[in-house]
């Protein structure tokens, strides 16, 4: 082995010196500095390659997969979408009472949600847990969902309202207040404003989809360890943990949830 061979091999496998290379560097101690520099450069490359991954990527993959699962299930069971309800807003009588909420929660799974039909309304409710008040009490996922449903029922008029901050700065402030920022415009947004859910101040957003309105509510104070899918009172939804918080998406069918999820997380980043 000579210097050139050593140098070439070092460039190929900077972290792995074979016996010949080890013997050579022992015989030529001045090369240790080169080994150090080459490994340092390798570490630089490693850090450079380690780019940020979009928020909610894994959740979106699982949602897409759940859609595939539902397609498979529908195909195998001859599912007829026409059998499902097409109602829009949740009736207050159903939403106001937790006892009347047919709530089923399953971690990372949409099995059993495939039988619900397309609906007119999608609710995306975001719980940001980044700035919870001092007296904040952690809630179970079921309780979070119940509060979401309750809040949606109370503010159902926002589904059709049109009121957004006049400037981008004002809109950004709303998001920053709950630990999030808008990276790209959120399309079809018809409403954005503060709200209170379970005594906690949050952010309420409504998006107008072709099939109906989409609602976004951001509330500080809750935390989950894994994505939770749920169905309650005719809604379907998910609670997605994000950096320092949780994002909940509520809809009447899981395809809408997945679409809303993608749109929301592509536009919003939790900081």
């Amino acid at each position: 082995m000579d210097d050139l061979q050593f140098k070439k091999q070092l460039e190929v496998t900077p972290l792995l010196l074979d016996d010949d290379m080890l013997a050579y560097v022992e015989a030529h101690p001045e090369l240790k500095k080169m080994v150090y520099k080459t490994r340092s450069f390798n570490s630089q490359i490693e850090r450079a390659l380690d780019i940020d991954v979009p928020e909610g990527l894994e959740a979106r993959i699982l949602l897409n997969q759940s859609y595939l699962v539902s397609e498979e299930a529908n195909a195998s069971h001859g599912f007829n979408e026409g059998e499902c309800a097409e109602s829009g807003a949740l009736p207050s009588s159903e939403a106001n009472s937790l006892s009347e909420v047919d709530l089923k929660i399953k971690t990372y799974s949409w099995w059993g949600l495939g039988g619900l039909a397309a609906s007119l309304m999608v609710g995306v409710i975001s719980f940001n847990l980044w700035k919870g008040p001092a007296d904040f009490t952690p809630l179970k996922a079921t309780d979070i969902v119940a509060h979401i449903i309750d809040h949606m029922a109370h503010d159902s008029e926002l589904m059709t309202a049109f009121k957004v901050p006049k400037t981008e700065n004002d809109l950004q402030k709303l998001f920053l207040a709950v630990g999030a920022s808008i990276e790209h415009p959120i399309e079809q947004m018809s409403y954005a404003g503060e709200c209170v859910v379970n005594g906690q101040k949050g952010l309420h957003i409504v998006l107008q989809e072709a099939q109906g309105p989409v609602t976004v509510i951001v509330i500080p104070g809750q935390q989950l360890t894994a994505l939770e899918a749920f169905q309650a009172s005719g809604y379907q939804g998910e609670l997605v943990p994000v950096k320092g918080g949780v994002v909940a998406i509520v809809a009447h069918n899981h395809e809408q949830v997945a679409q809303a999820h993608m749109r929301f997380f592509k536009a919003v980043k939790f900081v």
Binding site: D50, I51, V53, P54, L57, E58, I61, L62, Q65
Partner: peptide, 15 residues
């Protein structure tokens, strides 16, 4: 198994 794959490899596959 699929969820484990997603958890283990999604981020690096994205990169």
């Amino acid at each position: 198994f699929f969820e484990k794959l997603v958890s283990a490899y999604a981020k690096d596959l994205y990169r």
